[in-house]
């Protein structure tokens, strides 16, 4: 019964216990989870970019922190989560290649992390854990039984936040 729900890049999925939602191979992208511990409803959003207002109009709001988060929030509330109980965790936002003159786009990871935090704050959702930055990829998952957010890496092992 405990199914694994996979989230691709620039997408989000919501669900409830006993499911786990997972997203593979995040570099500069960020995996943002929302979770209501009482109803065990939650979601995972895999954003690529911080800010939709700095990009061309798109059919895919889940690509951006500022447009993706409100959408996922709407859907977890529709599944029975209560906003005041929601907690968020984020991971990702790495810079995968080290360049001497890193352009803005090379630093998109840290900008993604900043944007995720800013939007969560604006929406009034408490951020309770994060694992961002670094120079390595991450596979992230949230277990909707208990809200445990797992971060897997190639060289730095696995941890929960």
């Amino acid at each position: 019964m405990a199914d694994l729900i996979r989230v691709g890049m620039a997408d989000y999925k919501v669900g409830s216990a006993p499911s786990t939602i997972i997203s593979y191979g995040l570099g500069s992208c960020i995996g943002i989870s929302l979770y209501d511990p009482q109803t065990k409803v939650g979601g995972l959003l895999h954003i690529m970019l911080p800010d939709s207002t700095q990009a061309r109009p798109t059919d895919n709001p889940a690509k951006f922190a500022d447009t993706g988060l409100p959408l996922m929030l709407r859907d977890v509330l529709a599944q029975g989560a209560v906003k005041t109980r929601l907690v968020a965790k984020i991971a990702g936002g790495a810079q995968m290649f080290a360049f001497q003159n890193a352009t803005d786009i090379m630093r998109v990871g840290s900008r993604n992390a900043e944007a995720a935090k800013k939007i969560l704050k604006e929406l009034g959702i408490k951020l309770i854990a994060e694992d961002t930055g670094g120079t390595y990829g991450r596979t992230v998952s949230i277990d909707l039984n208990d809200g445990v957010y797992k971060v897997k890496t190639i060289d730095k092992g696995e941890k929960t936040i």
């Binding site: 593979y24 191979g25 995040l26 570099g27 690529m48 790495a94 995968m96 290649f97 786009i105 990829g137």
Partner: peptide, 9 residues
């Protein structure tokens, strides 16, 4: 590293 992570760039 993971292919997805490298492609992010």
């Amino acid at each position: 590293d993971m292919a997805g992570a490298l492609l992010n760039v």
